[in-house]
Design a protein around this nucleic acid. Structure first.
Lengths: 334, 334
DNA sequence: CTGAAAGCGCTTACAG
DNA sequence: CTGAAAGCGCTTACAG
């Protein structure tokens, strides 16, 4: 029942565990182990199905080949799709992923960082929230690679990969204005994170640049963790009581709720009511009519995150932090 | 830079590491350590921010408090939602999750099992595929808790948690027949797993029991990993060339493709064409008209999986395997 | 009431 | 060309 150890292999092969270790780690040549011994040991390893104990290896070497991934919620399709891409790319380079969801709770995020720390993960990929700046700074001070993605934390100097939310939001509003819209609403969340604030700023700036007066009453900030029924009621209130000819939803789940409202109040999307949703969702292409969306470049975000991680992992000296901002794409559907 | 060890704490407190260890592990009372010493040590731990190295603890105790989760694809909403629920429940009990996606590849699944094994995970939660029976049997022989979910493996004696796919599929078809439908199609996948076969069996049996002849031409088996454009072409072929008045989609992503086809060929869902989709999706409620679905009890599946894991983990003796089959729910929407 | 010491399974500097 | 031994940071049986 007990699994084999390097000692068992050494005994079977009648060599020292040092020799076995060198062979396992591909240092046989370098340590000039004879061909005959290499073959014998490899054969025994093969036949016995021996797998080195990674826990012992980690304890000794100090690295785990595990990357910790901290996100808001794995069941949100934006994150699950990113998680899948990151997993793929990490595995190809020999790294595994431990993930965990923060649910936008500062306490849970702090706890997760501590847990990952005590497990000695080699690197951290974090979609952060405000309030954990100090914890992240401590990771950096200890020399850990930390990459933020999706949301940046202005007060911490780390590497960051994300889409250009300001421009994407600006362009969405500009496209409404180009269609002749004047009363443009924004439905967003009240969570205080960079990428949501940028979407708001883009909305405001586009209005100003086009000489349209910003109206606070057309901006609905939905409380993050509330019941969907409440969200629907609030959006309905906005749609029914305000004169609106276009709306930008700042997240895909808000757009889903918004579409439910439109269905309920029987308001048609068309020439006199336009909609754009931030982040794509399968429901949008299928919807009648199809919903225009802002699409984040998931593949590129994941690729850049992994690249930065690997670069930092291989750099012994002080690492230069990088910010990589990738354009998002506005997909107009009819 | 280096993090603190138990030795550092012992030196600071002027006691042995044994004493510190007892205090950390809540055995202070049992080992009758004096109140004064306990307080002193706890204060130092608190102030220094010391976190025990879990790697060392794992090596010594043999357990990792990590559960390995092997699924088909984390970006599929069924799995990401289950993953979220399992994560939640596991965390509450002090366990962390490492996940990985198999993409329905036998080789990748085997590799993942080996990787988890060498990391000494305490338990395995697997949504399996045919071809890894031996590997799972080896885990069981080594005394590891293994819970299969979503799909069972008939040739291996393990615990299993899943929905009653046969009945759900049967009831779906029965509801079509009750509406007077005669030409009922099934769009399913060609992957050779229990839960897909059961859906097929339920379809066939319901037809037979109602005296409707089974027609092979009305069953479309889509190749698993193909491009969506090919899937759409095949479904279109079925819908255009066969006389059909109802269709059951065996997975939610097939239903999404199917709805795209209907939109394209401008076929309306209504009195003379009915649709049911297996596994819910946000797009279905929103669709015009809303799509009826078979909903799996995700919460109950996750809860039972974790319960079984904990039970097995706490049972020193030979564990009695259990199969838990939970009814799925047919939600009719109009 | 508390501590010295063995040992979990590895890696690697050192010695020969 | 190969091995003995130290040490990574813990836990715990044993001794006093």
């Amino acid at each position: 029942m007990k699994s084999l150890s390097i000692k068992d292999i050494a005994v079977k092969a009648n060599v020292s565990i040092t020799t076995v270790s060198f062979i396992i780690n591909g240092k046989a040549k370098e340590k000039s182990i004879s061909e005959a011994v290499i073959e014998k040991v490899e054969k025994i390893i093969e036949e016995s199905g021996y797998k080195p104990n990674q826990i012992a290896r980690s304890l000794r070497t100090g690295n785990s080949n595990i990357i910790g991934l901290i996100i808001e919620d794995i069941s949100n399709s934006f994150f699950s799709r990113i998680a899948r891409l990151i997993e793929d790319k990490a595995y190809k380079r020999g790294y595994k992923i431990i993930y965990s969801s923060t649910e936008n709770s500062i306490d849970k995020a702090k706890e997760l960082i501590n847990m990952f720390k005590s497990r000695k993960v080699d690197a951290y990929i974090i979609s952060p929230i405000k309030g954990i700046e100090e914890d992240i700074q401590m990771l950096l001070d200890d020399g850990n690679p930390v990459i933020l993605f999706d949301r940046n934390l202005p007060d911490v100097n780390t590497s960051y990969v994300g889409a250009d939310h300001f421009t994407a939001s600006y362009q969405s509003i500009q496209s409404f204005i180009d269609q002749g819209k004047k009363n443009i609403a924004l439905v967003t969340t009240d969570i205080n994170v960079e990428q949501i604030i940028e979407r708001y700023d883009g909305y405001k700036k586009a209005l100003e640049d086009n000489g349209i007066k910003y109206d606070d009453k057309l901006v609905l900030k939905i409380h993050f963790n509330q019941e969907e029924s409440d969200t629907i009621a609030q959006i309905k209130e906005l749609f029914v009581n305000k004169k609106i000819d276009a709306v930008l939803f700042a997240t895909n789940y808000l757009a889903i709720s918004g579409l439910k409202v439109l269905k309920k109040i029987n308001k048609k999307i068309g020439d006199d009511f336009a909609v754009i949703a931030y982040d794509d969702h399968e429901a949008f292409e299928l919807h009648t009519p199809a919903i225009s969306t802002v699409q984040q470049p998931l593949e590129e975000i994941a690729e850049n995150v992994i690249k930065l991680i690997l670069k930092q992992l291989s750099t012994k000296t002080k690492f230069e932090n990088q910010e990589i901002i990738i354009p998002a794409k506005l997909i107009i559907r009819h």
